[in-house]
Write a protein that binds this DNA or RNA. Sequence first.
DNA 1: CAGGGCTGTAACATACCTGTAACAAACCTT
DNA 2: AAGGTTTGTTACAGGTATGTTACAGCCCTG
Lengths: 253, 253
Amino acid sequence: MSEQDQSRKTPAEASLERNRWSRPPRVLIVEDERAIAELIRYNLNKNGYQCQVAEDGEEALLAVEELAPDLIILDWMLPEVSGIEVCRRLRARPQTRSVPIIMVTARSEEADMLRGFREGADDYMRKPFSLNELNARVDAALRRTRVTHQAHLLEVGDLVLDSEALTVSRAGKRLHLAPTEFRLLQALMLTPGRVLSRDSLLSQVWGLDSDVEARTVDVHVRRLRKALNGEGGLSMPDYIRTVRGVGYCIEAA
Amino acid sequence: MSEQDQSRKTPAEASLERNRWSRPPRVLIVEDERAIAELIRYNLNKNGYQCQVAEDGEEALLAVEELAPDLIILDWMLPEVSGIEVCRRLRARPQTRSVPIIMVTARSEEADMLRGFREGADDYMRKPFSLNELNARVDAALRRTRVTHQAHLLEVGDLVLDSEALTVSRAGKRLHLAPTEFRLLQALMLTPGRVLSRDSLLSQVWGLDSDVEARTVDVHVRRLRKALNGEGGLSMPDYIRTVRGVGYCIEAA
DNA sequence: CAGGGCTGTAACATACCTGTAACAAACCTT
DNA sequence: AAGGTTTGTTACAGGTATGTTACAGCCCTG
């Protein structure tokens, strides 16, 4: 269930949306009451998440290693190691420092909640809680990590363009592109498989009010190809397809 | 340290006293009820945040441009443009897509809350709410984006910046940086891998209302590189990447 | 008050990028 | 197969962005 954004999304963004999570997000539920754990698990499963349950703190810490979850739902009251202690330990490890943690607890004192946040929780919900609300908060937390980590990645084959770091790499190797080349590639990669006319590229890359000749696009495509495929031997496959009489298009061979 | 005179310490900045180098996080409060807005503002100020208030949706959208806030507290019910609409528009713009938004509203229906999350809110609080809780949630949201004054250790490669001790070291060896160089490095290291424009750096390092020329950034980058990589031979790899036509970015090679 | 460090600006040097023209090659039409 | 059209390729002149250096003013320290 690709959650909320049924409203405003260009097809390009929608395809991005799919690319970002090629796998279902993994959620670790740490909760000693079986019934509650199952309820949450059922609910999250229904929304496309892959869940695992841990019933005490020790188990939770182990499960984090194995599962490498994208998000953790953490009950405060647990046998063995308490939830708050689990939280603290996860925050102490660099590897798990940035995994979102939603604390869920029957403790209603404000002081407890503040403590939870202080120990590094990302969100805090009091029991009893609405499953819909939990869902919404899970979505929000994951959306956030998506936005900060990979929202700006465009991929075609072994080509990756990062529009935030403004970098392009092919097969893991960083490439150097001139500004115009970068924008041109970006325009192409926004709609992989779709043919873009020279005029369309001109307006996207050079701006709507540019007086640049259409042929200039060709020259830049040439430069871009050179940069992507390697100068001389063109040892790598060319992702940029020329569509005679129309324009260009990028696609994974 | 020209800091001392330029920072007229409101009593609220007491907690930041020892930390003159780190820029206080900027929070935009969007709330049409003056009394509530002031309450929130006072409370956040006390905790070392720099606040600005917008009283309606239009004003909010403008303020976002100017202030470039690190976090937004957004009331649902607003004159002109509603909070939910503001939220949607901010999420539609790439530049503001990742700014944390905490929705604060008197609407208690679950459906409203779900809608808030669906439009991209990061957190949702029902009025009336505890100021302590608001504080904790603001802290949590900013901790995630690492723009908080609490994350005082920044690392990139073998570079370590301690914004509390005000020290920088490379490969364990302590370096000497001038104040401006320090703040510049800090701004870069807050978002490693992300390209920062000269304008953005100017507002972060020199302040929003400075009339310093953009080229000045280049000169300081030069000085910073010298300090980081070693005066002459540049024996160490350069973590600062120049992005032609845009600005600079720090990354671990 | 003298000196040293820090800062912002100007000026120069350099590296890089860019659009166009001109020619070559490929393609399509007839 | 010829002729016209579209695209590939190359070279280049000019422009722009950045690197680098020098310097004058400022503030603080001693």
